[in-house]
Design a binder for these strands. Structure first.
Lengths: 211, 211
DNA sequence: TAGATTGTTAATCGATTAACAATC
DNA sequence: TAGATTGTTAATCGATTAACAATC
């Protein structure tokens, strides 16, 4: 293992791909895999697969390859998927409600424990998750450890909400508002910008190889 | 203008950022801008801003800078935002419904004209958009030019739906199912993989600078 | 004109790929 | 053992940054 310097974003972006791929192999009952096979499944080079893994440790055996379950567990641990997370949703509009109703996150270790909205009256639920008025967030955060805040407010309020989230000591933000949020090095933010993705799709569609 | 070779993905990813930024400047009533100012707003280098633009043409004037509206229109044209798109949604689950109800896409030139679902009975609507049974898609596509298909089905059916969409001659897919879709060079696909984004957030949160 | 800022060429940096010794 | 495949070092490729002549 090379000495652990800062891992580049390009590498980190591929970790979930590896994890997903290994889960697939596991559920197909395959127990060993080589960098060459992974490279074929993910359409990258075998060299890159080995380089990526070597950033974190030595997970394979020369002449054999990698044990699927062991490697999957190692990558899960690197990603932090070996624990559970308490998640809240801020903004109970269309997207916020859709995420609240989606049941898939629980399987991956993410428990949505509450939603908040400026217009909410207490006592309601969506998809079994309680909704509170946004003014209750501070009190709630004092009683319950929140790992991740999902921001699904309109863009006008997103930055203000994000700043408040940081003030309450929450360390991760998953932002769906079409506003770029960055609050410094001591809080993790992932921005999902759907309209930028849609614009890139328009570009790609208009620049396809000769149709 | 350098001769137009293939533009790298890294450049294309920044175009929506420039567009967004210029719209902001325009709505603030600012009429001229320099690469230096843009670089400050977007946290990239001025050199990169000029390099990026020079892939597509010469949009500025030495000693002056760029005209905000002209530059914005040029970038809109490069992205293909100078026309309108007919969009359908396939899969009327949580995310599909949320997108159908979201009104923001129309402003950018994307008209959601119908939704399809395997369980749908004809005659219903969501957010004013008609829902049809999925078996009607082929007929619909023959009567109406569809530019973009949004796939919000469960992951099990996503690939099959995507193949069908391609068969019907639709040239762009916006995929929200957690499955990587690629159908060759002659159809544009943008994958929004929310769980990968969530995993990256977990990684970042677990690797923050000393807290 | 003098100052400002572009567009482009050259230099640097970082990420990907290739090669191969180590070794299971 | 012979064959396979890792982990790592070196080579290549591509993207970002710096520098500057052109010129408004």
């Amino acid at each position: 293992m090379k000495k652990r310097e800062k891992i580049s974003d390009a590498v980190i972006k591929r970790l979930p791909m590896y994890y997903h791929c290994l889960k697939g192999l596991e559920s197909d009952g395959i127990s060993k895999v080589s960098s060459n096979i992974i490279s074929g499944l993910l359409n990258i080079t075998a060299s890159q697969v080995r380089q990526d893994f070597s950033n974190f440790g030595e997970f394979g055996q020369q002449g054999y390859g990698y044990d699927v379950i062991y490697l999957k567990d190692q990558i899960a641990a690197i990603l932090g998927l070996d624990r559970r997370y308490n998640v809240i949703i801020i903004g109970a509009g269309n997207i916020g409600q859709a995420l609240a109703k989606y049941k898939g996150f629980k399987n991956e270790g993410f428990d949505i424990i509450a939603a908040f909205d400026v217009d909410a009256k207490d006592g309601k639920t969506i998809g079994g998750i309680p909704i509170y008025n946004y003014i209750k967030l501070e009190e709630f955060s004092q009683n319950c450890k929140i790992d991740i805040a999902v921001i699904t407010t309109p863009s006008e309020s997103a930055r203000e909400v994000a700043a408040n989230v940081k003030r309450l000591g929450i360390k991760s933000i998953w932002n769906f508002a079409p506003v770029f949020i960055y609050l410094g090095e001591d809080i993790a933010v992932e921005n999902i910008n759907m309209s930028e993705s849609l614009f890139m799709l328009a570009y790609k569609a208009n620049n396809l190889k000769i149709i």
